[in-house]
Write a protein that binds this DNA or RNA. Structure first.
Lengths: 143, 143
DNA sequence: ATAAAGCTTCCCAAAATAGGAATGTCAAGG
DNA sequence: CCTTGACATTCCTATTTTGGGAAGCTTTAT
């Protein structure tokens, strides 16, 4: 039964109505059926799919990934190995990103700790960014 | 002496010529002086500034932040406290992002470990994304 | 009947980077 | 002197995801 309006589907799924139309337009979800007046209609199953998309977004999957995942999810005969491979690839991307951010943080921490943080203009953070010689500058140049 | 072309400045600073023009257009760096033929000219000091921008980008500062940092950097009388505050605010953002990504990773790891990853279509990852009841689903709904 | 709310499509914006087109300038070589 | 190639300029377009808004139609409620 396709009896939910787009705003009802939005509320039930947690996906903004604007985003639902966008996801449809780029093919992440199949085009919604239309009522006689042209309004989009959503079934409970459609809303499950939307919730699926939102959860995957919350896990940081790109819409491109999600398009694949939705396809696998709606395909009864898909192999779980495919899904696992997608998940593991995404985990690797997450780990790389985490390591990168951690490196940034550590470098900033070193610089910030060395900065007296008062009214004097002398500041190791800016000195380092300016390319002054020194240990932390070496760290930076490795990026 | 402003005697470097934009491509020379790009090579020396590590900032793409296209990006140099973009940074200038949005005011991250001041407008370059022009030679008689209209070409941009860069001094060694200008190139230092560009390198400064690149390093701050490598540390993940937004161009908005960098615009402030460049201003502070070029201002001889700025207080190091201002710089330190910017750096610490950025460190907090980094930590929050790291925690978020780590949470995503941990959730995916739990799901992936539970997935047998073979030819059978039964897959806990998809089940969870679909909103099936269970511990990991509860985790997800907290996002 | 009229007003409010909801739906439609279409346009525009953000941030940062990249690619290309059209045009102009400079230096070297035939 | 002229051509060629490299480099410069500006302007347009695209990317990704989300959001804001306008104009116009439909439904619902008063």
């Amino acid at each position: 039964m396709k009896n939910h309006s787009i705003s009802a589907a939005a509320k039930a799924s947690g996906v903004n109505a604007k985003m639902i139309r966008y996801y449809e337009s780029i093919g992440v979800i199949p085009p919604a059926e239309r009522a006689d007046n042209g309004y989009r209609q959503y079934s409970a199953q459609d809303i499950y799919t939307l919730r699926f998309v939102r959860r995957a977004r919350n896990l940081g999957f790109s819409l491109e990934d999600i398009q694949q995942l939705v396809g696998l999810w709606q395909n009864q005969s898909r192999a779980s190995a495919e899904v696992k491979a997608l998940a593991e690839a995404h985990m690797q991307r997450l780990q790389a990103k985490i390591a990168e951010l951690q490196g940034m943080h550590d470098t900033l921490k070193t610089l910030s700790d060395a900065c007296h943080g008062d009214q004097r203009p002398d500041c190791p953070i800016l000195q380092d960014l300016a390319g002054a010689a020194g240990a932390s500058a070496k760290q930076l140049s490795c990026h």
